[in-house]
Design a protein around this nucleic acid. Structure first.
Length: 741
RNA sequence: GGGCACUUAGCUCAGCGGUAGAGCGCUUCGUUUACAUCGAAGAAGUCGUAGGUCCAAAUCCUACAGUGCCCACCA
């Protein structure tokens, strides 16, 4: 044995051994009760970042429960990450001076597919390097055909039950990326925007969005506002930059009397709030900004200008015509921007598929309130409840190609009839608008069931990624080996970073309950964010992203794993700490030298404990209560009795810490016990009576390795293999229990 | 406008009702003897501020102050 622990030699050899032996598969414990974790599938568009190393807590749980004899399944996968990936890929294209518009849909899809396959390989290698005991034979990718099939089936089921509707709604639209977003995907920035007080006939109102005035179809005041009672319900004559016009004044509770003059212009086509006011008062939706972010033909001479240009031009013109009363240049407001490119989000009306969310969210709330699902740390419950109880219908259409194209076909004949109707009846626009649409579970329809026309066109849009990943727990299990779903669903734990509690976890609960009738997991575990050494958020733009592989090469995967759980309360953000990584690397060296002392520097032959030690082989699993020999307990040396008592305490502490998801408690207890109690005190005390102490030394060491194994799998396996034993691997030995006596 | 977290030794953080802990750093001593990625000994905190509850409070309650983060259709 080397004097100094060589993690580079040790960590490279065990993973393959474990995998080849099939230890990562639940089948190694065929009798055990199932214990399942589905790995949150990393995006397949980039290598892992350091935050992914936090998945170590899942490996700790899996290894622990596997040692307890459970049939543990930790299922890996990767996510196509629709929009995210398309953006990444478009950047790649841009490097070659190309864009997505240079390719047809099929070609582009294939190119992204190939790009993703490459990244997936890198990512898998990285997860292996960290020692994650994932069952690779059950690896899934979100865009596999059998998964798409189930997602389509879900969509069809929801459609048939009236939970899906085609709606003309205001969506958050990025004019640069050419797609809409869900509310969660929109960022807000504090900005100073001029607030114009403009004259609308006898009224004055305040607005920042001058360029949408051509889409105004009313003015609104609060129904109780004394100042404006006489205008409510009337039409007023106004002067505009395009000449005189008439506009209606409506009363609506949504208007804030304190803001500006208490009068607002209502632009149903370009503001979600105004759209709702418009719905309540049956106002016309007049779209004046296109999906290219430019004013359209309804804007007279301003047509063709971008939103920004138009605002300036209109302000100038209104100034000349004396239509602006004053301007507040210090006005601070929150501007919605695209979370990828920072472009201002245009609220635009668009035909999209929506999921009626109310019932689904109620069920999801109930599942947690009833205790069907528990959340750790508990404080996240309020975030979860809060979001679900104020949630709006979910827009699941995305105008990109990288994803599952929505299995809905538009009948061109029927839609002709309908478009004539909808002009007359605004109610149709308002509510479900599924007329003329054929939804299937993926089969391509040949003709319209209504008018028999064969003129059908598939919706070019794809599903929001979260609609498919929201079904991940059951789609992965239903598309794996026969019986997997029945055995492993619902899963035991969903462990992920808190930032996707709403995006992903809440959606999984809703969809899981809807499709399977069961909550997809029993416990939700939320870990914190890993920050850079200075406590800053890691981001590509800041250039402070740390590659976990470099850190693994420096300190070892075991040290990374331990450092991530040691000395930090689970669920809190933590800064990547080199001193801590170093300390944990030193700990591996300490452990190594304890092993060296026991294995190489012993006067007797190894293996004196074999007869008295509890069984540690796979064959003997579940055969009675393991406990250490009574003969140790009767030792005449108080040091022996003391270390065994302390060992028992550590077994209890570590076991409890893992059962209660208090990983740091267990990690700290082990560090303290192994280094200070065992090495510094006990081992030192045995140097004068070495041969006599060998059985206890071996016994305590062996048990320590077992307890430490979930945290530091590589070094514990290496040392375990150097001890005489009957089992094949520490991975499948029994979790230590304390003696009953 | 709501909500959450954090504020403990020089630094990074545990502890969350019973008279302060870890890692790193610092001081002194110690290398034939498992490990210098080491050992022994030690210095170091009125636990953000102000009130309150309790026999007892870093720990529970209230207010305040800083820091960070999330949510919300203020035009």
């Amino acid at each position: 044995m080397d004097k100094v622990y060589r993690q580079d030699l040790v960590e490279s050899k065990w993973y393959q051994f474990w995998e080849e032996k099939g230890y990562f598969k639940p089948e190694i414990n065929p009798e055990g009760e199932p214990y399942t974790i589905i790995l949150p599938p990393p995006n397949a568009n980039a290598p892992l970042h350091f935050g992914h190393a936090m998945y170590v807590v899942e490996d700790i749980l899996i290894r622990y429960h596997r040692m307890k004899g459970k049939a543990c399944l930790w299922l890996p996968g990767s996510d196509h990450a629709g929009f995210e990936t398309q953006v990444v890929f478009e950047k790649e294209l841009a490097k070659e001076g190309k864009s997505r518009f240079d390719f047809d849909r099929q070609t582009l899809y294939q190119m992204i597919w190939d790009f993703v396959q490459e990244n997936k390989g890198t990512m898998e290698g990285q997860l292996r390097r960290l020692g994650f005991s994932l069952d690779w034979s059950r690896m899934k990718f979100t865009l596999e055909q059998d998964i798409i099939k189930i997602v389509y089936k879900t969509f069809k089921k929801m459609f048939d039950q009236g939970l899906i509707y085609r709606g003309n709604r205001i969506v958050n639209y990025c004019t640069k990326h050419g797609t809409s977003f869900s509310d969660l995907e929109v960022l807000y920035e504090e900005r100073k925007t001029p607030l114009y007080y403009i004259k609308y006939g006898p009224l004055t109102l305040a607005t920042v969005r001058l360029e949408t005035k051509f889409g105004d179809t009313a003015c609104a005041v609060h129904p109780k506002d004394q100042r404006y009672q006489k205008y409510i319900g009337k039409e007023i004559n106004i002067e505009t930059v395009l000449g005189p016009a008439k506009i209606k004044v409506v009363a609506d509770e949504a208007v804030d009397r304190q803001f500006g003059t208490g009068v607002i212009k209502v632009t149903p086509a370009h503001s979600a709030a105004d759209f709702e006011i418009g719905q309540r008062h049956n106002l016309e939706i007049r779209q004046v900004i296109g999906y290219d972010g430019r004013l359209n033909e309804k804007c007279g001479k301003f047509a063709g200008l971008s939103v920004k240009e138009a605002r300036v031009a209109i302000a100038q013109e209104m100034e000349q015509k004396n239509l602006i009363e004053k301007v507040d240049y210090d006005y601070q407001n929150r501007v919605a921007v695209c979370y990828k490119c920072g472009t201002e989000i245009e609220p635009l009306p668009l035909q999209q598929w929506f999921i009626k969310i109310e019932d689904l969210s109620k069920q999801a709330i109930k599942a947690v309130k009833d205790g069907q699902i528990k959340v750790y740390p508990k404080r996240w419950e309020s975030t979860y409840f809060n979001w679900l109880s104020n949630i709006k219908d979910w827009n699941i259409s995305r105008q990109i190609v990288w994803g599952m194209q929505i299995p809905a076909w538009h009948c061109m004949e029927c839609s002709k009839v309908k478009s004539q109707k909808s002009k007359v009846n605004n109610e149709t626009m308002k509510q479900s608008n599924n007329y003329g649409w054929i939804v299937t579970a993926g089969e391509v329809p040949t003709k319209c069931p209504n008018c028999k026309s064969t003129s059908l066109e598939q919706d070019p849009d794809v599903f929001d990624t979260w609609f498919s990943s929201g079904q991940w727990p059951y789609v992965t299990l239903q598309t794996n080996q026969p019986g997997d779903f029945e055995k492993f669903y619902p899963t035991s734990v969903m462990e992920t970073m808190y930032d996707i509690l709403l995006f992903w976890v809440a959606r999984m609960v809703m969809l899981g309950l809807f499709v399977t009738g069961k909550a997809p997991f029993k416990d939700i575990l939320l870990h914190g964010k890993v920050l850079d050494p200075l406590g800053q958020k890691m981001s590509k733009s800041k250039g402070n992203v740390v590659n976990p592989m470099e850190i693994a090469d420096l300190y070892g995967a075991d040290a990374i794993r331990m450092a991530l759980v040691y000395g930090t309360a689970f669920g809190h953000d933590q800064a990547l700490s080199h001193p801590k990584l170093q300390a944990m690397r030193n700990f591996t060296n300490k452990l190594w030298n304890i092993g060296r002392f026991i294995i190489e520097f012993n006067p007797e032959k190894l293996g004196t404990t074999q007869k008295t030690s509890r069984s540690d082989s796979l064959i003997n699993r579940n055969s009675g209560t393991p406990s250490h020999s009574e003969s140790f307990r009767k030792s005449t040396y108080p040091e022996d009795r003391e270390i065994l008592e302390k060992l028992d305490k550590v077994i209890v502490t570590v076991t409890k810490s893992l059962d209660q998801y208090r990983f740091h408690d267990g990690a700290e207890a082990l560090y303290e016990f192994i280094w200070h109690q065992f090495a510094d005190i006990y081992i030192e005390s045995t140097k004068e009576r070495r041969a006599q102490a060998q059985p206890v030394l071996e016994y305590v060491f062996r048990t320590s390795l077992e307890l430490l194994h979930p945290f530091m799998p590589f070094i514990t396996e290496e040392l375990w293999q150097k001890l005489p034993h009957q089992g094949q691997s520490i991975m499948i030995t029994n979790w230590p229990l304390i003696s009953n006596s």
